[in-house]
């Protein structure tokens, strides 16, 4: 019943309305009378409209870590995908082992093992890296690298699917022009695979933005940890985690807009006309999000 209601109504719009109701509740400070908890809306509004330096820092860390980790992930994914498809058996074994391990264990375990585990055993301590004006702390460096390597294992399959989607005739044409394997990959195959890779890559990055919250386990004051700590101090748990959720929504929404722009750019050379077309895939994120017709189900 609920499901069919959602189908007719549109899951996306249901979510949107849900969010609005939720925010309205918070704003009006509705506390249902009996609860001892006293909602203080200014905690919610202040952390959104007048974010202090801790929140700004947390935002910066979340975005920065996500971007760098995703870049590492894409790079690792390309190499792992090529490794999986290599003729040379040891390459295939290494790539398969890497993907097997990092997809088969929880990220939280990987973070703990490679940061705390290695250090406690005296095997490896992550260094502080000086990058221009900023020092990258050991736990941040570890967080970026482990997130990136973990992401690479997932990207590998996405990249592999993208490479396999490219017409083999493209590789043959490139070879017949005297291109080496590396040139064929970097100039002919990967740019075409990108069209297939980019939509799931966008989803991966959306995930990455949110997954960085696990880095609180390494005492990194990214967005979630910042709110978590300040909620602990102020006991405004309800208001602050609601604000925290809104911040993540803002990040992922902005990313959604960027993503649809990128997807449109990478589809060049695939349409038969010069116009950008009017199909649903070419509609902007905002247009798709707000579309008045509910998505058609089956």
């Amino acid at each position: 019943m609920t499901a069919s209601f959602l189908n007719r109504f549109g899951t996306r719009r249901a979510l949107l309305v849900g969010c609005l109701v939720f925010v309205a509740l918070v704003v009006t400070g509705c506390s249902s009378g009996k609860a001892a908890y006293n909602i203080r809306p200014q905690f919610f509004w202040d952390s959104l409209l007048k974010p202090d330096s801790a929140i700004i820092n947390g935002l910066g860390l979340t975005i920065g870590i996500s971007v760098i980790a995703q870049l590492i992930g894409v790079t690792m994914g390309v190499f792992a995908a090529m490794g999986r498809m290599a003729k040379f058996l040891p390459f295939r074994l290494v790539a398969n082992f890497y993907i097997w391990v990092f997809r088969g264990t929880p990220l939280l375990v990987q973070l703990s093992f490679f940061y705390y585990g290695l250090a406690t055993a005296g095997l490896f301590r992550w260094p502080t890296v000086v990058a221009g004006p900023i020092d990258i702390l050991p736990q941040v460096l570890a967080g970026i690298v482990i997130l990136g390597v973990n992401e690479g294992a997932y990207m590998a399959e996405i990249v592999r699917a993208g490479i396999l989607a490219v017409d083999p005739g493209q590789t043959e044409a490139a070879k017949s022009l005297g291109m080496t394997y590396g040139q064929t990959m970097s100039r002919i195959v990967l740019p075409q695979a990108a069209r297939v890779i980019i939509p799931p890559l966008g989803n991966e990055f959306n995930n990455m933005l949110k997954t960085t919250s696990l880095l609180s386990a390494l005492s990194i004051f990214e967005l979630y940890n910042t709110f978590s700590v300040s909620a602990g101090h102020s006991y405004a748990t309800f208001e602050l985690f609601a604000a925290c959720a809104v911040w993540y929504l803002i990040l992922t929404t902005i990313w959604g807009v960027v993503q649809s722009r990128i997807e449109r750019r990478f589809s060049r050379g695939t349409t038969t006309s010069n116009s950008s077309g009017v199909g649903p895939r070419n509609k902007g994120f905002a247009a798709r999000f707000m579309s008045l017709r509910a998505p058609i189900e089956q």
Partner: peptide
């Protein structure tokens, strides 16, 4: 292969260029 040009049945032009 640089010395040998090849033309394919299905053209195989690079669609992104």
């Amino acid at each position: 292969r640089q010395e040998i040009g090849m033309v394919f049945q299905r053209f195989n032009l690079f669609p992104h260029m």
